[in-house]
Design a protein around this nucleic acid. Structure first.
Lengths: 245, 245
DNA sequence: CGCAACCTTGAGCGTAATCAACAAGCGTGG
DNA sequence: CCACGCTTGTTGATTACGCTCAAGGTTGCG
């Protein structure tokens, strides 16, 4: 890894680092294109952020889209009285920031120190117009996102606490393997409160359910941010026979 | 309305009716394009279906996408034990049928006698490749759909029964006005069970909540499939201050 | 090492689910 | 045209799952 290790100053800066250094490989929506599309590379900004930082807020003018390069991000929506729903957790390779009616529909915050690839939307529009392949990929990603959102609706509307938590752990594991990490000691970068707001539960119920699964020997808990999945088969059963038709 | 009133045989047939007869105007994703894109027009099939008919099932090979021309459609996901989550209700102008991994992620059924515009996906791919504008519109629609799905997550995860039902009625009303129908005596083409499976409630709770709202004078109920919204302001308050930031 | 944030555990409560009976539409056929 | 039966919706009584309120433990960071 030669020029990839070059010093990257903190915070935001115009990137002159070649996309070849991006270790996301085929997982990013822009994978492979940045090499071919100098236009895309030209509008790219690297952004480094601390843990627990706000990337943008619900209702802000949607002016950028982002690819998550390293770290983790949560997307959330708020009600006036403070009730919150987390609508997504993002990991390296995921993208976010498409707004409806020019506004972001959710708040985006980092869960850990994070590296982002930022694309100004106006510039991106013109770039997309120049790349059939890029637009095609964006469409495909949106379809996958929507499909995932519908799965989540099933979880929120029809699963009980045990099913929700099991499903959540299996999802973390599946996504970890998808980006080349081990399936079992799975990293849980989000707090219990975040998990609760993602699953439509309270923090107490999440905690109780996790201890329940632990006592049954399905999982082991290491220091609150790491969970071993000891019995996938049983967890899958608890998760309640995924949407079978 | 001249040639628009031509006889259309029942069931599926290759359409030779001009899209100009489509009264969806700018609401359909293909609006305006069918006139200009003879390719799109060429692959279009009209489909008529009875009420309570299955258009496709969750897990079927995704081979078509559809635009709803008239009638209403529900999209649902099933769990092995029969629990069901409705992930969307569709009205004229809406489109559906994009599958993830070549498979439909939900079952689509009609709620009333329905007219569909069906586009074979393989053909559409090539058509889309020929129309920048078409692809752009599809992407925009997907973003709007995703945004709506995230709203629904907030509803399913964080709202109580009263808020869910009020929100639901207001949504029906808003969408009715969007397609040029009156806001208040709003058509409710779906059963109580469908509403329950959409809101993550039981049929009894939906019923009780509706009678509750009726007794408070916020709505009036006409024959189970028509509701008058008597007090938008109050309903909006009950709906619990929409996602405010 | 000390403190503060986060997590766990417990007791009691409340909302919506469940179980059950009844009413109201609605389509069919006598 | 009305009676019948079936489907759909409403209402009631009771239960249970997860929420709330409260206290006690951990963890990790300065």
């Amino acid at each position: 890894m030669p020029s990839c290790m070059v010093h990257i100053p903190p915070s935001v800066h115009r990137s002159d680092v070649d996309c070849a250094c991006c270790d996301l490989e085929e997982r990013a929506f822009c994978a492979g294109l940045a090499q071919t599309s100098s236009a895309l590379r030209a509008i790219r900004y690297d952004t480094r952020m601390d843990s627990q930082a706000t990337i943008f807020r619900e209702g802000d003018a949607a002016s950028n889209i982002f690819t998550l390069v390293s770290g983790a991000v949560k997307l959330s929506k708020l009600m006036v009285d403070g009730r919150r729903q987390i609508v997504g957790f993002l990991f390296p390779g995921d993208f976010f920031g498409f707004g409806h009616n020019e506004l972001y529909g959710y708040t985006a915050e980092t869960l850990s120190p994070t590296t982002l690839c930022r694309f100004p939307l106006v510039s991106l529009d013109t770039v997309v117009a120049g790349s059939r392949e890029l637009e095609r990929r964006l469409l495909r990603r949106m379809i996958a996102e929507l499909s995932f959102a519908q799965e989540q609706m099933l979880l929120l509307g029809r699963m009980n606490a045990r099913e929700k938590v099991s499903h959540f752990l299996l999802m973390l594991s599946r996504r970890a393997t998808h980006r080349g990490e081990p399936a079992s000691p799975v990293a849980v970068p989000m707090s219990r409160l975040d998990i609760a707001d993602y699953l439509g539960l309270t923090i107490e119920t999440v905690s109780r359910t996790l201890t329940g699964l632990k006592k049954e020997g399905l999982i082991a808990i290491n220091g609150n941010s790491r969970v071993d999945l000891l019995d996938y088969r049983a967890l899958g059963l608890v998760a309640g026979g995924d949407t079978l038709s």
